[in-house]
């Protein structure tokens, strides 16, 4: 009798859990399936844009729909993994003229706060370390979706972008036109709940 009750309780709990969208959880960014991108876009002499991607990075975040103030995210990017579809340009970007990747091989972001600005939207504040310089930045982010995936995990996905002024990070762009002094950083990823 006792066993039956426990069983019923467990079944009830199991039935309720999937209905609840909100669960406190740590998420690991889905690097294995690579549903994660760190990209940038910078003007080229006023003619067009250069798009680039950092291919190696990792990170985790904390997301609980019932406790958004507790949201946090940490990422570490391997600067040498930069790819702009042009090997010699990549080498130039990684040289001491710009990113100086041999001296500063990683870029990191650690959030310090989150403010909800509407349904599925908010602004992440945090410390971005790039080129050895740490600056506080704000990045508006959007929750794109969350739920059970087809492969037995629970995932949540976001995107966000912000403009960075390169001189704030000690990268000298004074030889280049004004339009190239800042770039857009775009990040999107899915996390798998641990």
């Amino acid at each position: 009798m006792m066993k039956k009750t426990m069983f019923a309780t467990a079944m009830a709990a199991a039935a309720i859990v999937p209905l609840s969208q909100a669960q406190a959880a740590d998420y690991q960014i889905d690097i294995e399936g690579q549903h994660a991108f760190v990209q940038f876009k910078i003007n080229h002499l006023g003619f067009s844009y250069i798009l680039g991607s950092f291919e190696e990075f990792d990170g985790q975040f904390y997301y609980d729909a019932d406790d958004l103030d507790a949201s946090s995210v940490e990422m570490e990017v391997q600067v040498n993994s930069l790819n702009t579809n042009h090997a010699e340009r990549d080498r130039h970007f990684l040289s001491s003229d710009f990113l100086n990747a041999s001296e500063y091989p990683t870029a990191t972001f650690t959030s310090t706060g989150f403010e909800s600005t509407g349904e599925n939207e908010g602004v992440v504040t945090g410390e971005l370390t790039l080129h050895g310089e740490t600056q506080e930045i704000e990045m508006p982010v959007t929750l794109m979706g969350e739920g059970d995936d087809p492969w037995g995990n629970y995932r949540a996905g976001f995107e966000g972008s912000t403009m960075l002024t390169l001189s704030d990070f000690g990268i000298d762009m004074s030889d280049f036109p004004e339009a190239m002094h800042e770039l857009e950083l775009y990040v999107t990823f899915e996390g798998i709940r641990q």
Binding site: N80, S81, A87, E88, D90, R91, L94, S95, A101, S102
Partner: peptide, 12 residues
């Protein structure tokens, strides 16, 4: 031979 880690910078 391409796509080695950090290939362009190391080869440079």
């Amino acid at each position: 031979l391409h796509g080695l880690p950090n290939q362009a910078s190391l080869a440079g």
